[in-house]
Design a protein around this nucleic acid. Structure first.
Lengths: 210, 210
DNA sequence: CCTCATTACTACACGGCTGTAGCAACACCT
DNA sequence: AGGTGTTGCTACAGCCGTGTAGTAATGAGG
């Protein structure tokens, strides 16, 4: 027997605070995506970084602060990627409104497929996600929906076509885009972005005035 | 001081087992809808029925069994209400496929709006819902989607119109129907069933061949 | 009125997770 | 080298939830 006392745990590499925080957040995200937010316990995060719990409390005030920081990061990243999706300002007179819409959808789906880990938190929130995150996502959803509605109204006016309930039309496009994004996240091979883009183009063309 | 010993709790009315089970399930459903499934603790359910925890364990083997029973009830009720939504067998040659589809959507949304407490568990699953419930809902979703796809293919063939990716078209209709149902559940006043029905009719009409 | 099966209650043991106090190791800097 | 602040570790207290063992009340039938 080497020793009667329980062996002391070897020291984990020391990290400056900022770096430790990033590491902990990465680990927390992994756990949330794999086993849901309720599995993001302070102990699980610490263990994933091969560190003990007090280290986590050194980086974040408490578990809630950690989850909030995670939400902050996801929010920032998604908003950043949403920039190219909506054309800013009024529609140019010579642009095809249908093509603008299709391009927007394509840009959205491509953003999702290129940073799936971030978008998954937003579009397929793992079980136990903090209510605060859901609320923030919903706020952004409302803003985006309104932008979309304005664009569609302009587009519908420019191009003619059937008289559709504009609010519902925007909502339908929005719902379908999110549904497509969820499929892209869930089974990327089965649902290539182009399949949705082609579908959108076909439907819009069919809705053109005769 | 009336007594040194802590007062003994008054006995709750005695109920036969079957009846007690129903009462407990009703209470559990209330709690799940109001505060999420994670709030459906054995203690909370017992308290809601003005009873102590062992009474719950007398009615259900454990917390999991209680939640499973809850899922069973919801599953049975929704399936029962889904009967009138899909016409059984092949389409009659003289029926308008568009109107059949619109009627199906209307029947679905009406079922949802008439038993919101049950459908909410399925369509807006409260936080912490047992994974088993989600899995069962997903299975039924798959079956329904397949039925819808077959119907739409028949309908598209009968009526002509643009060549749409049939799988995606079925999925789109399905997604929009569920989205509509969620709105009906969330804000019934703002989203009367007829608004969706009218929208569906307009879009389908616009998709008719020229 | 008394018996007795059924139903409900009290009290406990256990486990998991949070958050904290105090000590030990590391590494940089003089 | 040796001080010194930063970072990490051990150990503890407390809360909340589950599930169980044993006891007490109830009320229907004899």
């Amino acid at each position: 027997m080497t020793s009667a006392r329980p062996a002391r745990r070897p020291y984990a590499p020391r990290l400056p605070l900022a770096q430790r925080r990033e590491q902990l957040l990465d680990a927390a995200l992994d756990i949330a995506l794999e086993r849901g937010f309720h599995a993001v316990t302070v102990d699980a995060v610490a263990r994933a970084c091969d560190v003990t719990r007090p280290v986590v409390y050194g980086a974040f005030a408490d578990r809630t602060a950690l989850l909030t920081a995670l939400a902050d990061r996801a929010e920032a990243r998604t908003l950043e990627q949403l920039g190219p999706v909506f054309p800013s300002g009024d529609l140019p007179q010579d642009a095809d409104p249908d093509e603008l819409l299709v391009a927007g959808v394509a840009a959205y789906l491509r953003a999702v497929s290129e940073d799936p880990r971030t978008w998954r938190v937003v579009l397929l929130p793992p079980e136990g996600a903090p209510a605060e995150l859901a609320a923030r996502v919903d706020r952004h959803r409302g803003v985006l929906l309104e932008q979309l509605r304005v664009l569609l109204e302009q587009g519908l006016a420019l191009r003619g076509g059937p008289a559709l309930d504009p609010g519902l039309f925007a909502l339908a496009v929005f719902t379908l885009a999110e549904g497509a994004a969820r499929l892209v996240l869930a089974e990327p091979e089965q649902w290539p972005v182009d399949r949705f883009v082609a579908f959108a183009r076909t439907v819009l063309a069919a809705l053109r005035p005769v």
